[in-house]
Amino acid sequence: MTGPSTLLALNWKMNKTPSEAAAWARELLASLPALPAGTALAIMAPAIDLPALQTALTGSSVQYGAQDVSAHASGAYTGETSTAMLQDVGARFAVVGHSERREYHAESSAVVAAKTRAAMAAGVVPIVCVGEGLAVREQGEHVNYTLDQLRDSLDGVTLTDPASLVVAYEPVWAIGTGKTATALDAEELCAAIRTALTGLLGDAGAQVQVLYGGSVKGGNIAEICGQPNVNGALVGGAALEVQSVLDMVNALA
């Protein structure tokens, strides 16, 4: 299908100090070629790194965002980061509902939906993550499970601008394991997600960027992102080294 462009979102997870983030960004910009037409590159960094990225990346084509965001605008919510705080340091995106947040911090899809609504209302683009574990996949319930999670994670969301929302399909069994869903596996779920988004959000939902995440690297990104309903990748391990990011950018070109 035509419509959504390609987003390469780099999830650093809990890696890189602010000084390391700044040095990494400078190294990237020194070697980064012009991005292919319609392709965007964005770094999802720990909140403490965002001011350093703002300094290093302002004026460049590289965008950045946070790995989480609060559902609350302000107040007595120790340890949380508001949309206003993200906007003040120029963060465009916020990852919401990553499988590690769901597992290690017991985030329900209702919490994810609240964060998604808060981000969208403030003009921060949420990257809403959904996906199944290995047991669900082996039972053949991966499509139904993921679509149920998607619906619950978008509860109460309305959409007029497709660019205000991103969805990432991340099969949990393929994150950091070296196991990768095939390009056809990724297409199966991303196509199902797009159909569900159209049903949930109307015509605008059909144009939402749908990413694949799970052991993506330079050697497989072109095939995965070449599928009709895969509009980019949410990359973990391969996002930490500048050269591997360059390899992915060159593969997409």
Rank of each mutant, 00 (worst) to 15 (best):
R151P: 04
L189C: 09
A192V: 06
A30V: 03
A168I: 13
S164A: 11
T81N: 08
D155M: 03
A47Q: 02
T158G: 12
T195S: 13
A23F: 01
S61M: 07
T39C: 07
D185A: 14
E188R: 15
A174P: 07
N15T: 13
F93D: 13
D68H: 14
W12C: 06
A122S: 14
S82M: 08
M14C: 12
V69K: 09
A94C: 09
G219R: 11
L154M: 10
N15C: 09
G214N: 14
M85V: 05
H142K: 10
M14Q: 08
M120N: 08
L159P: 06
N144V: 09
G59T: 05
A251C: 02
P4Q: 01
L211Q: 12
H72M: 11
L57G: 04
W24T: 10
A113C: 07
I43M: 03
G237F: 01
A42L: 01
P162D: 00
A71C: 06
V89G: 08
A119G: 09
P126S: 02
Y145P: 06
G232I: 06
G199E: 09
E188S: 10
L154C: 08
D155A: 15
H98D: 12
V166D: 03
S61Q: 14
E138M: 12
V96Q: 05
T158C: 06
G65W: 00
K217Y: 04
L29G: 14
N231L: 11
D49Q: 07
A204T: 11
L7R: 10
Y212E: 14
E187D: 14
R151M: 05
L57D: 04
A163I: 04
N231Y: 00
A40F: 00
G219Q: 13
D155L: 07
V143P: 12
E103H: 14
I175D: 08
V167T: 10
G236N: 12
T198S: 07
G199H: 03
A239C: 12
A21H: 06
R101D: 14
G226V: 06
T6I: 15
G140T: 04
V128A: 04
P46M: 01
V235L: 01
D152C: 06
T39G: 09
L53G: 05
W173R: 13
A25E: 02
A34C: 12
T2H: 08
S109K: 07
K179L: 15
Q227H: 10
E223C: 09
T195L: 03
E241K: 15
P51G: 00
T81K: 04
Q139I: 05
A9H: 03
Q227T: 10
I193E: 04
K13P: 06
T116Q: 08
A76F: 05
E20W: 04
V111L: 15
